[in-house]
Amino acid sequence: MNGEVPPLFSGKTDWLIMIGLLLVSLVAWAGHNYMQPAGFSGACTVRIFTEPPQKLVFTGPQPQPLTVVGKTGAATIEWGTDGRIRIASSTCPCKTCVNMGWTDSSSLVCVPNGIIVEPAADTGSKVDAVTR
C-alpha cells in the first residue's frame, strides 16, 4: 500500500457491494412502511367471557353465521358481503349489541351475554382505543 489511501469506491466490486446494500435497504424500508395489509378483511377475534373464557380468532369472513354460547345463551355473529361483522341475534335482554349494527372497526360488545367481537381491521388508521 506504501502508506497511500486508495480513493473510496475505486473498484468495480466496491460499487457492486454498495449498490447491493442500497437496494436491500430500499426494499426493507419499503416493506416496513408500505407492505402492511390494507383494507378490512373480515378478520376478527371473538371473546366469550364464560368460565373458562374462550377466544376465537377468524382470519377472514366466514360463509356461514357463527353461533356461540355466552352467559345467557346463544348469540349469532354474521359477516356481510363486504366483510363487515354484526351480532345478528343474542339472548340478552337489552339487544344493545344487535342495535350496534355492522362494524369494520369498533368492537361489538354484549355485556349480559359476555361476548366481544373485535374486528382485526387494518385500514391504515390503527387506533389504540375507541371512545363511544
Binding site: 369498533s106 388508521s125 387506533v127 389504540d128 375507541v130 371512545t131 363511544r132
Partner: peptide, 13 residues
C-alpha cells in the same frame, strides 16, 4: 396514542 371517536351513524370514525 391514537384514539378514534366512534360515529354512531355508521360505526366508523
Amino acid at each position: 396514542w391514537r384514539i378514534a371517536v366512534r360515529d354512531p351513524r355508521d360505526n366508523g370514525s
